[in-house]
Design a protein around this nucleic acid. Structure first.
Lengths: 172, 172
DNA sequence: GAAGTAATTGATCTAGCGATCAATAAGAAA
DNA sequence: TTTCTTATTGATCGCTAGATCAATTACTTC
């Protein structure tokens, strides 16, 4: 049988343990969505007592928001890297759309959608969702602005167009 | 003070009471989303004991699925009516997009998103979500097919295009 | 008016949630 | 080794969820 009896305690530096707990939470969110992020589930995943999770993360709402921000941040950076490898604005937009729809990001769709839904009951999460939305908007808008400068695109409102593009890509 | 003491029971025909309960649930979902659909919340709204809700709706999962289906069904019919008032395929598509984005449907966005998210843990709801998606797809596809016949549109895969259109509109 | 049917109530059960905290023990300091 | 700090445990609290059911009572039937 598996370790039913209490295994010996392993004592770690607070920073390390805190990181482990966030990592465990992030892994759960990635695999099962934000709604699976419960105090006890994180404790099991990190192989610690539930009280320790609460010790390092006094508010589950905050942890959910943190994990959401981390996951989306990672994705934004990833996309920025892909897009940064291209210079031509039109090609950039194409690369952006391609990488966002290549199917490897389906896992994160649950996080996006659940994040949006849960934000209605979690202020910290609502803040994170809004912040990450703006990051996307900024990224897309800058590409469009570049395109306008080089003459590849033409619009008087890059910001608006950026929002619409994001919406469409999200929908698809 | 409000009716703290037990008010006299009102006994109704099962069909009528059942309808009232579904109506109460639908109202809650419309105003606060599917996640607010709890046994007790419905009971309060319908002004009955919690046990009565459970009596007419033995499974809350099923009730959630039912309410979701009802709400989306209503919306589809509404859109069909609007679209049906126009004959030209291109104008139809325009009317469809216009009515879907006129802001009056924002209330239902929560239902859409929560439905999608909750479907992962509610089989009956998952079924309803899939069914309603197909209704949308059929509606849009038929418009596109009409357009292809009259020469207004040209695509070899109306079905695919329909899905993409739905995705974009959802995103926006 | 009495009897019977069944719609309705509300307490109760189990389960899971976040949060709290006294008790414990691992590892550093002396 | 002994002492002391503090990371860690696990039981526990209060709450909310869906589900269950014996008791109640409104209404129909005879």
């Amino acid at each position: 049988m598996s370790s039913t009896s209490s295994r010996p305690r392993t004592r770690k530096a607070p920073a390390e343990r805190a990181a482990e707990i966030v990592a465990a939470a992030t892994a759960i969110a990635r695999e099962q969505g934000l709604s699976a992020l419960t105090l006890r589930a994180v404790a099991v995943r990190a192989d610690v007592a539930s009280g320790l999770v609460a010790h390092y993360q006094p508010s589950m709402d905050d942890l959910v928001a943190r994990v959401y921000a981390d996951l989306v941040d990672e994705e934004v950076r990833d996309v920025e890297r892909v897009v940064g490898a291209v210079t031509d604005p039109a090609a950039r937009l194409g690369a952006l759309i391609d990488t966002l729809m290549d199917g490897e990001r389906e896992e994160l769709t649950v996080v996006w959608v659940e994040g949006w839904a849960m934000a209605r009951r979690n202020d910290a999460l609502a803040l994170a969702v809004r912040a990450q939305m703006e990051r996307w908007q900024t990224l897309v808008e800058s590409i469009i602005e570049d395109g306008c400068r080089t003459g590849a695109f033409s619009t008087t409102e890059p910001g608006e167009v950026a929002w619409e593009l994001i919406g469409m890509i999200d929908g698809l």
